[in-house]
């Protein structure tokens, strides 16, 4: 299972990076591969390439504002939530995204 995503909050200084850390830690614990891009006051860090997004199973957009490069996620199943959700229940959010990804996969097979 490979997860990609973006974190971005209103001011771009605190919630963005806390959400990133929480989701990374939660995914790691559950044994999933995760790559999160952050878009904050300092700009984009840890950027995702189109190839990475295309090869992932699901995208989590933990965002409170419009993000740059939204078009990259056109062809992937995505969950969009406020950063608060990622900070409050990171494990639940990862589990939910995996569930969605799995149901999509079995859906395409059938």
């Amino acid at each position: 299972m490979k997860i990609v995503g973006v974190c971005a909050c209103t001011v771009g200084i605190a919630h963005t990076y806390i959400a990133q850390e929480k989701l990374e830690k939660a995914a790691e614990k559950l044994g999933y591969d995760i790559h999160l891009e952050t878009q904050g006051t300092i700009g984009t860090e840890n950027p995702l390439t189109q190839e990475e997004i295309d090869s992932a199973d699901i995208a989590i957009l933990a965002i409170d504002v419009k993000i740059k490069g939204m078009e990259r996620f056109q062809n992937i199943t995505k969950l969009t939530v406020p950063t608060d959700i990622a900070i409050k229940s990171p494990t639940k959010l990862i589990e939910k995204s995996v569930e969605v990804a799995k149901s999509r996969m079995s859906g395409t097979k059938a």
Binding site: Y17, E21, I87
Partner: peptide
């Protein structure tokens, strides 16, 4: 500051 914030995501 961003790296600092990231640490606050660590229990």
């Amino acid at each position: 500051l961003a790296q600092f914030a990231k640490k606050l995501g660590n229990d």
